[in-house]
């Protein structure tokens, strides 16, 4: 028998005229009616197969499982953290190397020594000079401070025993006073 017609009728795909004709056929032809009933029995068996009792405990736990997975996806994993750390380190190293190589002149200086070594040495020498200048300034400042205190003591007719800590404290206080007074 014609399954195509049964399927279309069952799925409501027939036009109103076709539907009317089919229903007339069902009413008048017992063979067609029997075939359609067999078709309906199979459809109902399929729907019965679908009526399965599932374990409801699974659905009680499912939202918890989903929320746990969502929370774990929000945290960066070990691999992500490692990759991030590696990228940052690479960028820093790259900037450091680029800083040294950014000079457009030749990599060798006039004496033929490698530029990088010479630059490092120059930078180190500059640094030492600055340290020395600072130390000189401090010793000058200490002498000035000592003179001032001695002058003060002679004016006030007081004897002052000076220790290194006293001089340091005086310099700090004097410098703070100078900053407040001059703004420098």
């Amino acid at each position: 028998m014609n399954n195509d017609l049964f399927i279309k009728y069952y799925d409501n795909q027939l036009s109103s005229t076709e539907k009317e004709n089919f229903e007339k056929l069902l009413a008048t032809d017992p063979l067609t009616k029997k075939a359609y009933e067999d078709f309906l029995t199979k459809q109902n068996s399929l729907k019965e197969l679908n009526k399965i009792q599932l374990n409801q405990e699974y659905f009680v736990n499912l939202p918890v499982k989903i929320n746990q997975r969502i929370s774990s996806k929000n945290k960066p994993t070990f691999i992500t953290k490692t990759a991030l750390a590696f990228s940052l380190t690479s960028i820093i190293i790259f900037l450091f190397i680029w800083n040294f190589w950014s000079n457009p002149t030749t990599t060798l200086n006039n004496s033929g020594k490698p530029f990088i070594a010479e630059t490092v040495k120059t930078n180190t020498n500059n640094f030492s000079e600055n340290i020395q200048k600072s130390e000189n300034k401090i010793s000058v400042s200490k002498n000035v401070a000592k003179d001032k205190l001695i002058t003060y003591s002679s004016i006030e007719n007081e004897s002052i025993e000076l220790e290194d800590n006293d001089i340091d404290d005086f310099i700090n206080t004097y410098q703070s006073y100078k900053i407040i007074k001059t703004g420098r």
């Binding site: 399929l46 019965e48 197969l49 679908n50 009526k51 399965i52 009792q53 599932l54 374990n55 699974y58």
Partner: peptide, 15 residues
Amino acid sequence: DIVQDIDNKMKLEKL
């Protein structure tokens, strides 16, 4: 895990 009795297991298998 999802179906426990035999009837339902058979139905699901057939489907």
